[in-house]
Simulated scan of single mutants.
Amino acid sequence: MTAPLAQILQAIAGQPRTPGELARQLGTTEDVLGGMLRTLHAGGFVQEAQSGAGACSCGPCALKSLCRNAESDTPNLSLLRLTARGETYLRRSLP
Rank of each mutant, 00 (worst) to 15 (best):
A23P: 04
A55R: 11
L66H: 03
C61V: 04
L33G: 06
E87V: 06
Q47H: 10
A53S: 07
Q47N: 10
T28A: 03
R38C: 10
M36C: 08
S93C: 08
R85N: 07
R85H: 09
G54F: 00
G86Y: 00
C58N: 10
L77T: 12
Q25L: 13
M36A: 13
K64T: 10
G44W: 06
L80K: 08
Q25D: 08
A42S: 15
C56N: 14
V32L: 07
S57T: 15
C67I: 00
C67D: 03
T39C: 05
R68M: 01
G27V: 01
P75N: 07
L66F: 02
T28K: 07
P60L: 04
R38I: 07
Q47I: 11
R92D: 15
E71P: 01
K64M: 07
R91D: 14
A70F: 00
L26D: 04
S78D: 08
G59I: 05
Y89I: 08
G59P: 01
R81T: 15
S57P: 04
E30M: 15
T28W: 08
A70W: 00
D31I: 11
R85P: 04
G27A: 03
C67F: 05
E48D: 04
L40N: 01
C61H: 07
Q47L: 12
R38S: 14
H41R: 07
G52K: 08
A62E: 12
R38K: 15
F45A: 10
S93V: 07
R91N: 14
P60M: 01
R91F: 00
P75I: 12
R81K: 15
A23T: 02
L63Q: 13
F45R: 04
E71D: 13
A49P: 04
C61L: 03
C56Q: 06
T39F: 11
P75V: 06
A55T: 10
A49F: 00
N76M: 09
A53N: 09
Q47W: 05
G59F: 09
L26N: 06
E30T: 15
T83D: 01
T83L: 01
L90I: 12
V46M: 02
E71T: 11
R81D: 12
L33H: 02
T39E: 03
Y89C: 06
D73E: 05
R38V: 12
R68W: 03
R24T: 13
V32E: 11
L63P: 05
Q50W: 06
R68T: 00
L40H: 02
D31Q: 12
L37C: 08
S65D: 06
G86M: 04
G59L: 12
